[in-house]
Design a protein around this nucleic acid. Sequence first.
DNA 1: TCAATAGTGTCTTTTAGACACTATATT
DNA 2: AATATAGTGTCTAAAAGACACTATTGA
Lengths: 236, 236
Amino acid sequence: MTARISAVNSAGFVSPAGLTAVPVVLAPRQGRLQVLLVPRTEEPFAGTWALPGGFMSPAERPEETAQRKLTEKTGVGAIYLEQLQTYAEPDQDPRGWIPTIAYLALIDAAVLRAESNARWVPVDDLPPLAFDHARVVRDGVERLRGKLWWSNIAVGLLPERFTMPQARAVFEAISGVRHEPSNFRRELEQSGLVRATGEVARVGPGRPAALYEFVERRPAWSLRRSRPPATVRARR
Amino acid sequence: MTARISAVNSAGFVSPAGLTAVPVVLAPRQGRLQVLLVPRTEEPFAGTWALPGGFMSPAERPEETAQRKLTEKTGVGAIYLEQLQTYAEPDQDPRGWIPTIAYLALIDAAVLRAESNARWVPVDDLPPLAFDHARVVRDGVERLRGKLWWSNIAVGLLPERFTMPQARAVFEAISGVRHEPSNFRRELEQSGLVRATGEVARVGPGRPAALYEFVERRPAWSLRRSRPPATVRARR
DNA sequence: TCAATAGTGTCTTTTAGACACTATATT
DNA sequence: AATATAGTGTCTAAAAGACACTATTGA
């Protein structure tokens, strides 16, 4: 086991040994919601996986640290970054008093391939995680699901322009439930979050799909809809 | 100006000079939502007000620190305490690198009188606040309003047993909008958050009001309702 | 009995869920 | 033409909003 780190400030009091920022990077892949993890090589967590976080410096804003760590691991920055929660339990980190500021991060759909030794893992099938990162992932998933229909948080997970079936696939992967196609269309249109571009996408057989785009690409809330749509019920 | 505090950990890196936890204590008073503030005496913030926070120790969970500071200032603990957000901007604290974990705190309606040199101030009429506490208060108010109809968060703000008009007054003070009495009653009953006790309250003229209580006094979410009730529109 | 406050009933409007049907492409 | 996918229309059910009306107290 590595030595425990400690710190004392210039007034003589014990202070945190460090401060970390960790992004929970989520994306729908293969129809399921997945999270980006990196392997942990140091004891006592060798063999487990962890979120791609790192130590903050005094000159850095915590979002910047989360962004930087993310870029180091994936080669891209986050399209969306929102503070999730801070974890500061006394014994959460065996290295010492090291609180963690967690962020919910979404990266552009187009760069989902870029990886190093990082790995995408379905959030409902996690390997053993270091620290309390399993809980952090759970909190992140919950936040993403909770905001899905109330904000344009899905912006970064869809291409610039997308079809209704594409959007539906992403929403279904995130929430884990199936939606009725025609109702999904109506709900998303009425949400005020998206707008038709007038163009269509021709791919394969079948009627071409109309292309949509988000009205607002910066973080924003829906003004119209009042509740999330229902899931599809079994046919009777 | 006081000297800037710094800290270095045993591995030789700069570490935070301290970590603070600050509760945003909110309560409806005199029909308006108010926040509990304490006067700041030290430079450079002498003359301003601040949230009643304080430094954490390594052995303390951050919620405990927030609770303790609250008790020191008001004589009571929080009935409800929930992490709001962490503020760790590089220059937010002139004393040094001191991140702040903010909590949303509600205290029992019965002890709202207990004060020391602390003061209740309407959230829409704040005096100059130290640090970025004005922003912290805004974030707390937003969270409280957002959760009002979706959880039993109002538990601590109402007496053990309360009448519908009382509940309505509290909800209106928090949200800042007026509700139609009969619809308010229906919505709150159907929310599943409260239940009639069968007793009535006789006070002054008029028909006695039935007494209600919360089904669950621990933090919980409503299962039934899907959106907040409408505000009262002007008569036509 | 009157003023004051609490509570009920109900009509209308809006929103959501189910699902039959139409449209437009490829092979 | 057959098949596949996209999109429309609409019926029904449930929820919310408006508001007239009834109920029960103290003075």
